[in-house]
Structures are given as structure tokens and as C-alpha cells.
């Protein structure tokens, strides 16, 4: 999909000086710590670092890092992410989850609440039932529990009723991870036409109909767990198809998120709600047309 070029609106001054790979970073302090995104070239003086990434230079005391502006998701402990299970590795008791990062995340069997909600040791039966909990292609929301030194991330879904399989009627929207604004809550009600969303920090956003949020799977109802062995529509159980207004509202929220993403605006509950309300006069199908995007960007630039 081609996007409207970002030059359509008045340009804003860059809030911070930017470096590209290979650009020199002056680091006059002795014993400067080279952080992520920097390197020391053999040709340079000791006081010069070189950026290896395009981004903003950040200095914390003697540590110099370059924070990338875009690109794939870089995990931090405590982030709420939305991911898709790509593999069930029974022998190593873990799921591999695609979270739009540089490598797949791992969700250990010991990091999920077991059916029945009791605390107990994991048994071999649990291993055999792993696919009944999360199967391949299942969408889950999870929290980053640990980031290893090599960047591998471990997830957990232990918060019942908030994290776990996403089994409501909804739609997944993939955006650039950098555009998701970090906040204290990422599983939120949008306050628009009964819609709610899981704003995964990794750039996957799950938009769903809030009235069915009670079906959020924390593993509390064992029967439903067992019935969900086949990830078909039938397994979604009591969830019914959304009504027409609900479906239109879902579309509007989805397109609002994509419009924000394409325009490089940050995506938060407030901005999604604002764009949804502002676009009421436009049918959802027209929200990704260049005409609408230009109008949105012009409206925003006018007040910048």
C-alpha cells in the first residue's frame, strides 16, 4: 500500500538532533561507556564514537546510546504485548510467539496460569495439554517478564482476566511499534461505541467489542478451556457475530489506528478516540483514502 507522502503538511522542527549510521558522536568524557547503537571505529580518536543506527543520541552520565526511531519492537520488562503463537514446543515446555520483534518471544509453560486456577507443580499432563491452552495461530496478550542479555524475551500471562488468549470478536491491526505511546494501561476501553483495545507496545493492536470483554480468557473456566482444543469459530463458544453498527465501529477504529500510523502520529486511547469522533461524517471505508489522510494531517498541522 502506498501512503500519502508525509510532506503534505507544514514541517515541524525536529525536537532532537539526529544521527545516521556512521555519523560521529562527540564523547569528550574519559571512560565513556559505549551503549547500544554506537561503536568505536579503528580510524577515530578515542573521543569519537560512531552511530550504528539512525536515531537520537541519549546520554546518561557516561553512557552514550543511540535510540532508534523506528524498526522492530525492542522489548522492555513490563510491556504488554499482543502476539501470535507460531510454534508449540512441547518438549521444551514453551510456546514461540511472534511479537514483531527481531526474534520470537518465548512463553514458558510455567509462566501461564493453569486451568483450574490453582497453584501447583506442572505435570506431564500439562505438557501434553499445552496445545489446548494456546495452539498455533492463537492470538494472545502477554507481558514481558524478562529480557535476556542476548535480547531473547520471556513472556507471562499470569494476570487473570487481563492477559491470555484473545477470543473476543475483534480485529488485529499491525502498526509500527514506535508509534504506540507507552502508558500505564494498555488493555483499555476506548470510550467509543463500546469498543476496547489491547494496545500492544510491540505494534500489534487488538480491537474488540467491549461488551464481550467478560469472555477474556484468563483460564478461570476450565470447560471452555477444554472445549477450545480446536481453534475454529465453533471454539469461540458463546461469542456471537458483531451487529452491523458494532462491525462498522470496529472498522472505524481500525482505520483510525492505521491513519494515525501512516501519518506517523502516536497511537494512544485519546488519539484513537479523537480521530474516531472527528471522522464520524466519513464512512469507515474512506478513512484510508489519501483525501482523508491529507485532511487529517492538515487539520492537525494547522494547530501545531
Amino acid at each position: 500500500m502506498f501512503t500519502a507522502p508525509s510532506a503534505t503538511t507544514r514541517s515541524l522542527p525536529s525536537p532532537a538532533p539526529l544521527v545516521l549510521p556512521g555519523d560521529a558522536i562527540h564523547a569528550p568524557e574519559v571512560n565513556t561507556l559505549r551503549g547500544h547503537g554506537t561503536r568505536q571505529s579503528a580510524h577515530d580518536r578515542a573521543s569519537t564514537l560512531r552511530a550504528t543506527q539512525a536515531g537520537v543520541v541519549e546520554r546518561i552520565n557516561k553512557l552514550v546510546t543511540v535510540r532508534a526511531l523506528r524498526g522492530r519492537y525492542v522489548p522492555e520488562v513490563g510491556d504488554v504485548v499482543v502476539g501470535r503463537v507460531t510454534q508449540v514446543q512441547i518438549s521444551s515446555r514453551r510456546w514461540r510467539v511472534d511479537v514483531q520483534a527481531r526474534q520470537d518471544a518465548a512463553l514458558l509453560l510455567s509462566a501461564i496460569p493453569l486451568p483450574g486456577g490453582v497453584q501447583r507443580r506442572r505435570t506431564p499432563e500439562d505438557e501434553l495439554n499445552m496445545r489446548a491452552v494456546y495452539a498455533e495461530r492463537d492470538l494472545i496478550s502477554a507481558e514481558v517478564q524478562e529480557v535476556k542479555a542476548d535480547g531473547t524475551m520471556m513472556l507471562h500471562t499470569r494476570i487473570q482476566g487481563r492477559l491470555g488468549r484473545l477470543r473476543q470478536r475483534g480485529v488485529l491491526v499491525a502498526v509500527c511499534p514506535a508509534h504506540i505511546r507507552r502508558s500505564t494501561r494498555h488493555v483499555v476501553s476506548l470510550g467509543y461505541a463500546g469498543m476496547a483495545a489491547v494496545l500492544g507496545v510491540n505494534g500489534y493492536v487488538w480491537v474488540y467489542v467491549e461488551s464481550e470483554a467478560t469472555a477474556l480468557d484468563g483460564g478461570e473456566d476450565e470447560e471452555q478451556e477444554m472445549a477450545a482444543e480446536m481453534p475454529t469459530d465453533a471454539a469461540v463458544g458463546g461469542v456471537t457475530a458483531p451487529s452491523r453498527p458494532q462491525a462498522l465501529a470496529l472498522c472505524r477504529v481500525r482505520n483510525a489506528i492505521l491513519a494515525l500510523d501512516v501519518s506517523c502520529f502516536s497511537i494512544s486511547v485519546e488519539s484513537i478516540r479523537a480521530v474516531c469522533r472527528w471522522s464520524e461524517a466519513v464512512p469507515p471505508a474512506d478513512m484510508l483514502q489519501p483525501a482523508f489522510l491529507e485532511r487529517l494531517q492538515a487539520q492537525l498541522a494547522a494547530s501545531a
Binding site: 526511531l69 502520529f265 494512544s268 492537525l300 494547522a302 494547530s303
Partner: peptide, 25 residues
């Protein structure tokens, strides 16, 4: 490249402010 990335950063930071939300309401 610097101009484009600066533009992206500026938009992102500006759109996180209250003025942005007010602009579309």
C-alpha cells in the same frame, strides 16, 4: 534521511501532547 526521520520524530512527539487531541475535537 535526517529530514525525514526528524519529521517523523517531531510528529510523534507533538501528537503525544494535549494540543493534538484538542485539534481533532
Amino acid at each position: 534521511a535526517v529530514a525525514h526521520l526528524g519529521q517523523e520524530l517531531a510528529r510523534r512527539e507533538w501528537s503525544a501532547t494535549a494540543a493534538f487531541i484538542a485539534a481533532v475535537q
